[in-house]
Amino acid sequence: MTAHDATPPESTSRAVASIKTAVADAYQGFFDITHNSLALLGTLAAVALITLSARADLRASAEEQLLGWLLERQEAATADAVYTAEPSAIDRVTAAQPDELPKQQANVTYWLSRKYRVAPEPLSVLVAEAFEVGEKAKLDPTLILAVMAVESRFNPFAQSPVGAQGLMQVLTRVHTDKYNDFGGQLAAFDPVSNLRVGARVLQEAIKRAGSVEGGLRLYVGAVTTDGSWYINKVMAEHMRIQSVALGKPMQRLPQPRPTTVVAPATPAPVAPPGGEIEAEGPATPGALPSSPALSRS
């Protein structure tokens, strides 16, 4: 190789020099622009501060606008936090698909849903729970559901004037100890907890009374009456729900035969000699006339 061959061509040298010059010019231009922009921003900021210091009204207006902007941002951030989706929210929902229940329970769920206008999904949980609790406590689950229907119409937040609360209208202040295992008295408004406590109260009442009817009388706290109105209502609903569960024609409680109260007959007046018998007044309401002579026709 000759010395001439080792020397780069002149055109290549010029090209390299041109590239270096262009890069240097670009860097210097970027530096100048950035430097000048920062200087300009600094100048504008200084002018703004001087102006705001001299003009109290402008300063107050600027502070108000800045505060408003900050509040809007805070409200937006709070709203985002409130309405942010929580995948764990489904764990707090007391609901299930009715079609996943056994046939009897599904039949009862859909029937109660239509009758009481309650969504079938939350009812599915209650029906399944009633059947499970009933089996353990040796209570007919349809009786538990009947009490629930009569007491609250499946409203978990119901409260009576005397303080009975929840689905089965348990007197929370009386049965406070029964809610201890569920975390306290506020569990009365948890549907499943209220159902379990109510079923326990009902079981104890039936055991004390020795019969379902007597247990219902104790459950409703009938004092001044025999509680027949409540017993008949619960038992009628119990039989209806039981028929639905078994897929049988709707059962009905036999209606008591009306009794007719007949007033004792009025003794016939004794006519004076040669006189005529006259009725002294109308017959007793509901009573039959004792003789033609006592009726006015």
Results as ranks from 00 to 15, higher is better:
Met1Trp: 08
Ala3Gln: 10
Ala3Trp: 04
His4Glu: 06
Ser11Ala: 13
Ser13Val: 13
Ala15Ile: 08
Ala15Phe: 07
Ile19Ser: 11
Ala22Val: 15
Asp25His: 01
Phe31Thr: 00
Asp32Tyr: 00
Ile33Asn: 00
Thr34Asn: 00
Ala39Val: 05
Thr43His: 13
Ala45Gln: 13
Ala46Cys: 10
Ile50Tyr: 09
Leu52Ile: 07
Ser53Val: 11
Ala54Glu: 02
Arg55Asp: 09
Ala56Tyr: 05
Ala56Phe: 03
Asp57Thr: 10
Ala62Trp: 06
Ala62His: 12
Leu70Val: 12
Glu72Ala: 14
Gln74Glu: 14
Gln74Met: 07
Glu75Gln: 12
Glu75Leu: 14
Asp80Phe: 02
Ala81Arg: 11
Ala85Gly: 04
Glu86Ala: 13
Ser88Phe: 06
Ala95Tyr: 01
Ala96Gly: 13
Asp99Ser: 14
Leu101Asp: 02
Leu101Ile: 05
Ala106Asn: 07
Thr109Lys: 00
Tyr110Gly: 00
Leu112Met: 15
Leu112Trp: 03
Ser113Gly: 11
Arg114Phe: 05
Lys115Met: 11
Arg117Val: 07
Val118His: 01
Ala119Arg: 15
Pro122Gly: 02
Leu123Ser: 09
Val125Gly: 01
Val127Phe: 03
Glu129Ala: 14
Val133Thr: 15
Lys136Met: 09
Lys138Tyr: 07
Leu139Cys: 04
Pro141Cys: 08
Thr142Asp: 04
Ala146Gly: 10
Ala146Lys: 12
Val147Met: 03
Val147Pro: 03
Val147Thr: 11
Met148Asn: 09
Asn155Met: 06
Ser160Glu: 14
Pro161Met: 05
Met168Ile: 02
Val170Asn: 07
His175Gly: 02
His175Gln: 08
Tyr179Met: 02
Asn180Lys: 15
Leu186Gly: 11
Ala187Asn: 05
Ala188Asn: 06
Phe189Ile: 02
Asp190Pro: 01
Pro191Glu: 14
Arg196Ser: 04
Arg200Cys: 02
Leu202Ala: 03
Leu202Lys: 01
Ala205Ser: 14
Lys207Ala: 15
Gly210Ala: 10
Gly214His: 08
Leu218Val: 15
Gly221Asn: 07
Ala222Asn: 06
Ala222Phe: 10
Ala222Val: 05
Thr225Arg: 12
Asp226Arg: 03
Trp229Phe: 10
Asn232Ile: 00
Lys233Leu: 08
Val234Met: 11
Val234Ile: 14
Met235Gln: 12
Ala236Arg: 12
Glu237Val: 09
His238Pro: 00
Ile241Trp: 10
Gln242Glu: 07
Gln242Tyr: 13
Ser243His: 03
Ser243Asp: 04
Val244Phe: 04
Leu246Cys: 02
Gln251Trp: 09
Arg252Phe: 14
Leu253Gly: 02
Leu253Asn: 07
Leu253Gln: 13
Leu253Ile: 11
Gln255Gly: 01
Gln255Pro: 03
Ala263Thr: 06
Pro264Ser: 14
Thr266Tyr: 03
Val270Asp: 04
Pro272His: 08
Pro273Ile: 08
Gly275Tyr: 03
Glu276Gln: 12
Gly281Cys: 12
Gly281Tyr: 07
Ala283Val: 11
Thr284Val: 15
Pro285Tyr: 04
Leu288Lys: 15
Pro289Trp: 01
Ser290Glu: 04
Ser291Trp: 06
Pro292Met: 03
Pro292Arg: 10
Leu294Arg: 05
Leu294Lys: 02
Ser295Val: 05
Ser297Pro: 01
